[in-house]
Design a protein around this nucleic acid. Sequence first.
DNA 1: GTGAAAGCGCTAACAA
DNA 2: TTGTTAGCGCTTTCAC
Lengths: 350, 350
Amino acid sequence: MATVRDVAQRAGVAPSTVSRYLNGQLRLTPLIAERIGEAIATLQYVPHAVARNLATGESRTIGLIVPGVTNPFFAFVAEEVEALASAHGYSLLLCNTKGLAEREGAYVDLLSRGGIVDGFIYVGMHPRNARLGAAIQRGCPIIVVDERIDGIPPVSTVFVDNYGGAFAATRHLLELGHRRIALSGGREDLMTTRERHAGYRAALEVAGLDVDPALAIFASYSEEAGHDAFVRFQALPDPPTAIFATADAIALGLYAAAAEHGLRIPDDLSVVGFDDIPVARRLGPPLTTVRQPLHLIGQAACDLLLRRLQERDDTPHYMVLPVDLIVRHSASAPSATKVLHMDREQIQLR
Amino acid sequence: MATVRDVAQRAGVAPSTVSRYLNGQLRLTPLIAERIGEAIATLQYVPHAVARNLATGESRTIGLIVPGVTNPFFAFVAEEVEALASAHGYSLLLCNTKGLAEREGAYVDLLSRGGIVDGFIYVGMHPRNARLGAAIQRGCPIIVVDERIDGIPPVSTVFVDNYGGAFAATRHLLELGHRRIALSGGREDLMTTRERHAGYRAALEVAGLDVDPALAIFASYSEEAGHDAFVRFQALPDPPTAIFATADAIALGLYAAAAEHGLRIPDDLSVVGFDDIPVARRLGPPLTTVRQPLHLIGQAACDLLLRRLQERDDTPHYMVLPVDLIVRHSASAPSATKVLHMDREQIQLR
DNA sequence: GTGAAAGCGCTAACAA
DNA sequence: TTGTTAGCGCTTTCAC
């Protein structure tokens, strides 16, 4: 591969002149410029990105670490970040961790080790992450999305109103007339899970209901989790008439399990999700869910990062983004026949 | 940020000794090793990735350029590549181009400019890409997936049996008894589109049927494309009884449009897709489609690239991966009532 | 306007 | 085993 020296030699100038040519400070004699242009073309020269980064101390590139692009939620956030970054002349390098702590650590290191990106956005799934803490400590420009990482210095973070969303979802179910409302949640140590759980409990309490701990199951943001939760709820002596799934992926599992067990949604069981991934509106029935402001999340995070890079202001900023309850057709009033049915079952059980 | 020199100074050794410590060639006096370790810890030192890449000439990182991770197809390929790469000790940097030629070019440049990745996999959507050609010409290790790029030197490529898949899909519809079979395709200049179209035509011809050009519409691999195609097909004097969608995304649009127009799938219209994205089996009715070997595509591409990097063998290799027709419930025999209905309509039209 | 020289932070060859 | 030196490919003062 050709280098600046080769080009310089061939054009009969100094490397620094070639560098100036490349960087557009065109106070060059036309003749020289032309000779350089020719040399570049015949040598098929392209500047070495890493050498340039090392010399200039910047890369005009940012990073984004996500648990998994197969989850539409993260995929959309990624595209949003990419759009904004490229609009500002930055390239975006995406890192997929599959939610594995070890991979997350590896990518945090890679990106924070310097030179390859100027800063990055971290959308993680681990409430603890020592290497992330260390990177922040070292002063790397990092923005965290929707998670509170323990044991790290304060860092700019984009939050989503998980509490409010869960509250609205649960209240919706309450207003429909449900009294036995279950929660099928993600990993209990995640901040998002805890906040959504808190919003759920608060709505119940405001309505004057007791919260039954047997009605809350925590596993993961996955279909299997929803499937399992359904089975366990049905095994209860007094099964819930509605389930709040703290992620649409979980709701998908609920749908599948309900179909297998011959229960109809919403007639026999009401379901409300969280996220509003694109499939949500295509399900049968379309899923009532709490919509996360996907575009805002990506934009806000990118904006925070770019601002930090350009203004060299490293005081942490926090944002809380609003959510919306999207009412579709997966939740309705508990039917009389179902109540009847339940009563009869209970009688039989005695 | 601390550098090797700082660490060396603090530990009272030479920079090269620190470097050896870092790179695991631990033939160091325990005392010295300990001093270095201490210095690293107190200084919070981490080696500068880019400086190291520049010095060693490698990054142990590979790149992957895709049109869009919001398309599950690409998202799964990406995760597969990531898994294999990390199993071999490589990191994976993903670039999302949104299918924009300009962004594709920018990322091709970024990755081929040297130092940031050792090589990359290109899953593009443009039959022409000058910058990709230039990068290949320069000898960058690049693997192309499922597209033939015009005007570039031969390059290792992973193909999928688009022709065979389309042939099987169409034959399936033929065997069910359909005679008016339409094709709703992606961009006409894409090799995947052309091959799937060719497979479709071949199946028709083998069955002794004429291929009606009015029955093939080309637009893009998107829902809107399917929606539009449906409308245009229905406007035909003699609408098709079955549609082969050359991507599941297109089939999604067909489903939506059919629902809007009160047509039931498969009773009133049979549909076969291509890709087998995860939602396919969750649709109502589950989609009959041609499954692409997602895991194999990612693995094969990654394997080709890693082999190229390790063995320094730059003769192009080609692979063609098989596909499977997954029969579910979106295609059935054209119903008698529908035939009747059609006949009546035709009579009215005369 | 252009060239010479120094240096970004690291590793690797060679000496010691 | 450890230190010295040179250099990866580029940019950027500072003279000319």
